[in-house]
Design a protein around this nucleic acid. Structure first.
Length: 280
DNA sequence: AAACAGGCCTAAA
DNA sequence: TTTAGGCCTGTT
């Protein structure tokens, strides 16, 4: 009998500050699922939680300990996104993107989970990425109980380092299996120190990640932005390429958006993906 | 049925 | 330094 975790309902933020739908469905994370009418349940850092909207507030069901140790930081609640995004409004298009994406928060995800998830993401769409990640967790993630259901933690690098690529056949990740195992071994052996890279400059972190087989510029940028907390990272995928070409025809340098360029990237990306970019 | 996907790798100019 | 083709699996 597992011990029951005492969950409480804790206010996270206003809905203006944190929009769960945008935040969980903008493509940055893969383990939050809508259970119905705006209720999301997810797992991160080996803890499960449920996020709900009520009135103009967003609340989380979690233990107070988990809130302090995990969720407060995870949702980046001490950062003023609205204030920061003022400097992104360099054009009508950017203003529209900022307004459209208002409420998105860059989740401060687990380092290894972010790296591994974005290795999986290459040449895949979100439903398939989520499917592969769930099967990976089912294969070797630790079980946890939360509000009457069983969930699985994301497997640590050490658990995957022991496996061979062929062992990942059940998760159907295709040619990415080799990349996953290889990266897990690099992390597990200490050859790739993600904590160190989270605390070094972004260039150092990028160079280290790019040395991994199966990690190119796009995946590395996502890993440093979503997993290592380097908010100036600016991942450019096919959607971003299209949007930037159309709205910054003279060329584009992410550094114009400063230390939080990654947030600007999410606004542009989310806006482009929802098809609103042709309006301006 | 064949092409293409929220890249990356290798080989070859 | 840029480009083409292949890669697992899944969907259209």
């Amino acid at each position: 009998m597992l011990e029951t975790i005492q969950t409480e309902r804790i206010r996270l933020a206003s809905r203006a500050e944190l929009d769960p739908v945008k935040t969980f469905d903008c493509g940055q994370c893969f383990r939050w699922n809508m259970d119905g009418d705006g209720v999301y349940t997810g797992v991160a850092f080996g803890r499960a939680a449920r996020v709900v909207c009520e009135g103009d507030g967003v609340y989380i069901f979690a233990s107070p300990e988990d809130y302090e140790q995990v969720w407060r930081d995870y949702f980046d609640l001490d950062t003023d996104y609205a204030g920061i995004s003022e400097q992104f409004r360099v054009s009508d298009y950017m203003s529209a993107a900022c307004d459209f994406g208002a409420g998105i928060r860059i989740l401060r995800q687990e380092r290894w989970e972010a790296l591994c998830s974005f290795i999986i993401s290459q040449c895949n769409n979100i439903p398939r990425i989520k499917g592969i990640v769930e099967r990976l967790c089912a294969l070797c993630g630790e079980e946890l109980e939360f509000m009457g259901s069983t969930y699985r933690a994301f497997p640590p690098a050490s658990a995957l380092a022991r496996l061979e690529p062929a062992d990942l056949a059940p998760i159907r990740s295709g040619y990415r299996a080799e990349y996953i195992i290889n990266a897990a071994r690099a992390v597990d052996s200490g050859e790739l120190d993600l904590e160190y890279l989270a605390n070094s400059d972004i260039g150092t972190a990028m160079d280290a990640l790019l040395s991994l087989k199966g990690v190119g510029r796009k995946v590395a940028n996502c890993a440093v932005l979503f997993g290592l907390g380097h908010m100036e990272a600016f991942p450019i995928d096919v959607w971003m390429k299209r949007a930037l070409k159309e709205h910054f025809p003279a060329g584009f340098d992410p550094s114009v958006f400063g230390d939080y360029a990654g947030l600007a990237q999410q606004y542009i990306f989310y806006y482009a993906r929802s098809g609103g970019e042709s309006d301006v």
